[in-house]
C-alpha cells in the first residue's frame, strides 16, 4: 500500500521540489519536499518520527502539535517548506537517552494518559507553557491546553501531571528549596 506521503514525495516529471534545511530535535536535516507536503507527514513518514500523531487532520484536535521555534503549532496545518531555517521539536526530542523530561515523568506519575494518542501534543504544549510560566495555576494549565483534545482522561490527571512537572522543574532549579 502506498501512503499519501509516498504519493506526494515520489518524483513525478515536471513537479518541482524545494530543498529545505531545518533543525529537528537539535539535528540539522536537509530534505527535498514538494511544497504541498505537510509538516506532520514529513516528520512521520519522511523522518520516521511517528510520535507526532495526526488526529482530526482539520486543525481542531492538537494531536499533531510540535514546537516550532519553541512555540506549539499544529503540524498538520503547516507546510513542510515553511519550516525552512526553523527549529522543530517533536516528542522524540523531549527525553535524553537515559532521562525523561519532567513533563513526561509527570504524565507517568499522575497517570496523565490512557490511550496515549493525544499525549505527545499535550506534553509539548505543556513544556512550552512551563518554559514561559514556571508556576502555572490549574486554570493557566487548562487554558494553555484548551487546544489539545483528550477523549479518555477527562483532563483531570493531565492537569495534575503538568502541576507535578512544574513542581519538579522548580525544585530542580532550587526555587522551592
Amino acid at each position: 500500500m502506498t501512503s499519501l506521503y509516498d504519493e506526494v514525495q515520489t518524483p513525478t516529471d515536471g513537479v518541482p521540489t524545494r530543498r529545505v534545511t531545518m533543525t529537528v530535535n537539535g539535528e540539522k536535516r536537509t530534505v527535498d519536499v514538494e511544497p504541498r507536503l505537510l509538516l506532520a507527514h514529513l516528520l512521520r513518514q519522511g523522518m520516521q518520527l511517528t510520535g507526532t500523531h495526526v488526529g482530526c487532520d482539520t486543525t481542531s484536535c492538537g494531536a499533531c502539535t510540535v514546537l516550532f521555534d519553541g512555540r506549539p503549532v499544529k503540524s498538520c496545518t503547516m507546510l513542510a517548506v515553511q519550516a525552512d531555517g526553523h527549529d522543530v521539536e517533536t516528542v522524540e526530542g523531549m527525553s535524553s537517552a537515559s532521562e525523561l523530561h519532567p513533563v513526561q515523568e509527570g504524565f507517568k506519575q499522575e497517570h496523565g494518559l490512557q490511550c496515549g494518542y493525544c499525549t505527545p501534543g499535550m506534553m509539548l504544549t505543556s513544556k512550552a507553557l512551563l518554559e514561559r510560566n514556571p508556576d502555572p495555576s490549574e486554570d493557566d494549565i487548562r487554558w494553555a491546553l484548551s487546544g489539545n483534545l483528550c477523549r479518555c482522561t477527562g483532563y483531570q490527571n493531565i492537569v495534575k501531571s503538568v502541576l507535578w512537572a512544574a513542581e519538579k522543574m522548580r525544585a530542580e532549579r532550587g526555587e522551592d528549596a
Binding site: T59, T65, F68, P72, T77, W143, A144, L145, S146, G147
Partner: peptide, 9 residues
C-alpha cells in the same frame, strides 16, 4: 480567537 495553538501561528 480559535485556540491557543492556532493563536501562535
Amino acid at each position: 480567537v480559535a485556540d491557543p495553538i492556532v493563536r501562535t501561528r
